[in-house]
Design a protein around this nucleic acid. Structure first.
Lengths: 224, 224
DNA sequence: TCCGCTGCGTACCATCTGGTACATGGACTA
DNA sequence: TAGTCCATGTACCAGATGGTACGCAGCGGA
């Protein structure tokens, strides 16, 4: 099948790059690490940049898959958050996550081959997570800021875990965050002026209704 | 003075690398970007790796300086957190922060020249911030996890800000986090079993006592 | 005055870089 | 059977790479 070899080669490249990063690797090094010649990498991807572009696309796709998995079982929100952290903290995912952050670093400097990454790295997640918070009863602006905060905290914790390996403290920290970000506000907060920090007028108990769950899953899947 | 030229050159290198990163830059490119020759970089730093090692040390030093600044005015904890975020979100700091995260990415792959970075990137901050929470009345394990969470959330928010530039949402998110992580727990939480999530038996109002403030500043400065 | 040290320029090196030219072989199609 | 297309190997290229050899100017101290 046409393009079949290319896909297989890309697979091998991505898993090879997960091991040691790509920043300091030449085409030839990548080639020999994936059992091919630099000639073939150029043939299939046009240039080193072309290869990196495709690698980035792959990593993006993996992210979207993770996002889809997140949505499969919506239950108690604290539990969703915990399960997601437990998933991310799996050591088997560490190489992929390192690669993710390496790409992120290059994206910060606007490298052209990170364009699609820049476009999706926040946007693809913020929407669905915002939806989750909205379903919990927070109004839009509040759901939005909680979503962004959750995304940031999760990635920050992951960055810490990847470099220190302090699983216990970070599990505890992730747990605490899940509680904090989903907990109802202290009594009396509704009366306070300024920005709303709680879903005062809405129902606050864990969402279990079938209808709601389906809605959220649909929202998530529509983005994939 | 001996080594004077070297320091000046290192200064120029660091500020040059903040602009566009270093991953894809050769010695010669760095040299011409800092008005010298690649011969001089080798002369002063021994090798490309040697140069990067020194650059990393510089960035670490800047981090420690930022940490020291954080400690200067301890007041209402929410206010401290806000001020710190406002400081980090300053666009003038963005280049330095991009460089920080680029180094972080390389550190994830254990590059030898990131050794000192790996050792300090979490440790240098976790201790002092833990101290802050401890002064607020949380017990040690709780202070520790709150510190790690705060560090993670801050860095995650920064990563988001650097790539999206969505200042408003992220200011709001940072604000929310400051409230959440310092707020007293919902009534009745003390009775619940398991890990303590609140300073139940301790005083909870903002720390303003002169004695306490001095203690924390000392702890922070001892690390610099 | 001579010495040694810091700082720097020029020229050079073997090796590696991304990329190209060209030939070839197998598989499917007409 | 002839033609076409995907995939691949060998060989090559000009230029860049990190690093070295060597020389030299200035300057402070003996």
């Amino acid at each position: 099948m046409a393009g079949d070899a290319r896909e297989a080669l890309l697979d091998r490249c991505v898993s090879f790059l997960k091991e040691g990063g790509f920043s300091q690797l030449s085409l030839r090094e990548i080639a020999s690490g994936t059992g091919t010649s630099h000639r073939m990498l150029i043939y299939h991807f046009g240039s080193r940049e072309g290869l990196l572009t495709e690698v980035v696309r792959r990593v993006e796709a993996e992210q979207r898959a993770a996002l889809a998995a997140l949505a499969t079982e919506l239950d108690d929100p604290v539990e969703v958050s915990r399960r997601f952290w437990r998933h991310l903290a799996d050591p088997a995912l560490a190489p992929a996550e390192r690669l993710f952050f390496e790409i992120y670093a290059h994206a910060l400097f606007d490298r052209s081959w990170t364009k699609s990454f820049r476009a999706s790295v926040i946007a693809a997640w913020a929407g669905p997570v915002e939806e989750l918070f909205a379903q919990l009863g927070w109004d839009r602006p509040e759901a939005r800021r909680r979503a962004r905060l959750s995304l940031a905290a999760t990635r920050g914790l992951l960055l810490d875990l990847l470099i220190t390996g302090d699983r216990d403290v970070l599990d505890a920290a992730a747990d605490l965050f899940a509680q904090l970000v989903t907990a109802p506000p202290p009594a009396g907060a509704c009366a306070a002026g300024g920005v709303s920090i709680s879903p005062c007028a809405a129902e606050r108990s864990p969402v279990r209704a079938r209808g709601v769950r389906t809605d959220v899953v649909e929202v998530l899947e529509a983005r994939i």
